[in-house]
């Protein structure tokens, strides 16, 4: 049973359709990214999941139960909610903001305090320094961390995020996104995240739902959207970032079969990195990164090694890697 399911959701504002007949399922622990240009209906779609917007038709199922079977407030207390503008209560301290939902749920004050402290610490906001500050004393990145702590405070199984990093400068955004990805709290969570940032979507998504004008253009794993676009819109949407995304999406395993046989036993392929080979799940992007850090040897190309089986590793240089990558893309595009 999916943790969260939408069936045929439709929402009109006046005569304009904001969301039309959208269905999806998110399995427990998975992340679904709602992606699309501004005004495509992705925020409306997200807000229908916690009933901040009521759909005209269609249903939302949470763990198989109709979301309308309980009052919206109770539904929302079971879902974390993070928005771009953060929306911290300006007259509450950081600690009070984080404690809002556990208090609504009637948790014991001592437990609430302990949980708040733990979360602030984990999000790099030492409670002794930050707990009693007011939101206007914090930087944008710190505020967004508090917003995240607030959403996680009552440990809800589902988290909804609406452009959570959208208001941050690129450097803060990248660092918070990394923290976010690595937060153990979030590993077990079912998440739905709205963004218009393609890179962000590919970094965080198990599944991407690409929307345009309220309609689903394609729903699937990032790699499928990239390599097998369902229509011209999908193709154009990723067009500008095509190469960068392909480098991230493709793994070494995808290109190994494209390597020429004779390269197995090249004499120049002996390198110190053989002691530390890359796993075949590493992305092409990461492999290129690694190559760029290897100093060029006296003769021949810089080389990295990739583990192909328990006992074998293969050497890769820029030319072999890029040739194999190009062939793999052609093969994957053409399909089976």
């Amino acid at each position: 049973m999916p943790a969260l399911e939408a069936r045929n959701l439709t929402k009109h504002y006046g005569s304009r359709a904001a969301v039309q007949d959208v269905s999806f399922r998110v399995e427990a622990g998975q992340t679904l990214v709602l992606l699309g240009p501004s005004g495509c209906g992705k925020t409306t779609l997200l807000r229908m999941l916690n009933r901040l917007v009521e759909p005209d038709t269609g249903v939302v199922l949470v763990n198989g139960h109709d979301a309308r079977s309980q009052p919206p407030e109770l539904l929302r207390r079971g879902m974390g909610y993070v928005i771009q503008q953060v929306g911290l209560l300006p007259h509450y301290t950081v600690a009070e903001n984080v404690a809002v939902v556990p208090q609504l749920l009637g948790h014991a004050p001592a437990a609430v305090a302990a949980r708040t402290e733990e979360l602030l610490r984990r999000l790099h906001l030492p409670p002794e320094q930050f707990a009693h500050q007011y939101p206007n004393q914090l930087s944008g990145g710190q505020q967004q961390r508090v917003g995240l702590a607030r959403a996680l405070a009552a440990d809800p199984p589902i988290i909804l995020l609406d452009e959570p990093f959208g208001a941050l400068d690129p450097i803060t955004r990248a660092s918070i996104r990394r923290e976010f990805r690595e937060l153990p709290e979030l590993r077990r969570k079912t998440m739905v995240l709205v963004t218009h940032d393609v890179t962000e979507a590919f970094e965080l998504a198990d599944q991407i739902l690409l929307l345009d004008a309220g309609r689903v253009q394609q729903l699937g794993p990032p790699r499928e959207l990239l390599l097998r676009p369902a229509n011209n819109f999908v193709r154009r949407f990723f067009g500008a970032d095509q190469l960068a995304l392909q480098l991230r999406v493709l793994r070494l395993a995808d290109i190994l079969c494209e390597l020429p046989d004779n390269e197995y036993f090249q004499p120049s392929s002996i390198s110190y990195s053989v002691n530390n080979p890359l796993p075949s799940t590493a992305s092409i992007h990461d492999t290129l990164e690694k190559l760029s850090h290897i100093p060029a040897p006296a003769s021949g190309e810089p080389t990295v090694w990739v583990q192909v089986s328990k006992s074998t590793a293969r050497p890769l240089t820029y030319p072999t890697l890029m040739t194999a990558f190009g062939r793999a893309i052609r093969r994957l595009r053409e399909g089976p």
């Binding site: 916690n50 901040l52 407030e73 109770l74 539904l75 929302r76 207390r77 079971g78 909610y81 928005i83 503008q85 953060v86 929306g87 911290l88 209560l89 300006p90 809002v100 939902v101 609504l104 917003g147 607030r150 959403a151 909804l160």
Partner: peptide, 15 residues
């Protein structure tokens, strides 16, 4: 009152 604050409060489950 900042609409985002009200929206966040609602989204957290305040009646």
């Amino acid at each position: 009152v900042d609409a985002a604050v009200v929206d966040a409060a609602r989204g957290l489950g305040l009646t």
